[in-house]
Amino acid sequence: MQSSLSSPRHASSHGTPNRAAIIWAALIFATMLTWMVGERGDAGPAVTALLMTIAFAKGTLIILDYMALRRAPLMWPLIALGWMLLVCSMIGLAYWKGLAA
């Protein structure tokens, strides 16, 4: 990790290489979960809730860490996370509406 050792010791907005790699592994694992749900043909409200929860969790990692909004003025992560939560919730609501139809 030559770059880490010789980097300026100022607070980085972009985290460490290790953290970025761990987050990548978590994102890939979550993607495999989503893919497996699709391959098994699982369906239903609980499965949809799971899929949207996984999407929200993955989005949170991207927004806070990869987009580096964790250290941005609070308004920006709140807007991005709020968008993610709103869209995932609306999709869940639409799914529920489809069940009732």
Binding site: S4, S7, P8, H14, G15, P17, A20, I28, T31, W35
Partner: peptide
């Protein structure tokens, strides 16, 4: 679709590493 998700996530990781390396000078 899953392969494309993996490709985009991996690409994003590489971009993060590029930014970290650039930030380190």
């Amino acid at each position: 679709g899953a392969i494309n998700t993996v490709l985009l996530l991996t690409s994003s990781f590489f971009v993060v590493r590029a930014v970290q390396v650039a930030e380190a000078g």
